[in-house]
């Protein structure tokens, strides 16, 4: 049995420390060790993006990262985006624009979308569709996801003029 290693990581603003097998995938660490089951696993080959989370502010696939690689990092999962009554603009938009059906891919799709909006706050339809390359949704045909991302961009632009801080996620949101 390979020696376990200590992993300290901040998830959704909260510090965690745990001994894990080095081979433990970040997605299993989040789901099994921390009981943050909002992040899902939809494939084995890093294609579907259901496991997408933010690591140090960048959208990454947590099925293709070891928990040990996240040591010392700030991780944000869907649970850290916002909660009912205080939703993140992306959550609000997915709800309003019917951007989800079964909801299984949705946490990953929302976080990948935030990843896009951080790089490109006002994306065109084509840019949104290209940015969704790393997620697969079997239910929606993507159209309402595209509209949700567009809508979120607008909400976040308004948010930014009001607070100057549209993209902050995790703590205090």
């Amino acid at each position: 049995m390979a020696k376990k290693v200590e992993v300290s990581v901040t998830v959704n603003g909260k510090a965690y420390s745990a001994e894990v097998e080095p081979r433990m995938l970040l997605v299993h660490f989040l789901r099994e060790t921390l009981n943050l089951t909002g992040t899902h696993i939809g494939c084995d080959t890093s294609q579907c993006g259901a496991c997408t989370v933010m690591v140090n502010g960048e959208a990454v696939k947590s099925c293709t990262m070891l928990a040990v690689q996240a040591a010392g990092c700030q991780v944000t999962t869907v649970e850290g985006l916002g909660e009912v009554g205080n939703l993140h603009p992306i959550q609000q938009s997915f709800w309003e624009k019917h951007g989800l059906q079964c909801g299984f891919c949705t946490p990953g799709v929302m976080i990948a979308s935030i990843g896009l909006l951080q790089q490109n706050p006002n994306p065109s339809e084509e840019e949104i569709r290209d940015a969704l390359e790393g997620v697969i949704c079997r239910c929606t045909g993507y159209q309402f996801i595209v509209e949700a991302v567009k809508h979120a961009a607008q909400l976040m632009a308004v948010d930014e003029t009001e607070t100057g801080n549209a993209l902050q996620i995790g703590e205090g949101r």
Binding site: R31, L36, T37, G38, T39, H40, I41, T77, V78, E79, L81, G82, E83, V84, L87, Q91, F94, W95, L100, G103, F104, T106, P107, M110
Partner: peptide
């Protein structure tokens, strides 16, 4: 949706 967009869905693997 409120459940599903906040990571509070309850799927079998959860």
């Amino acid at each position: 949706d409120p459940r599903l967009i906040t990571g509070n869905g309850y799927f079998t693997d959860d």
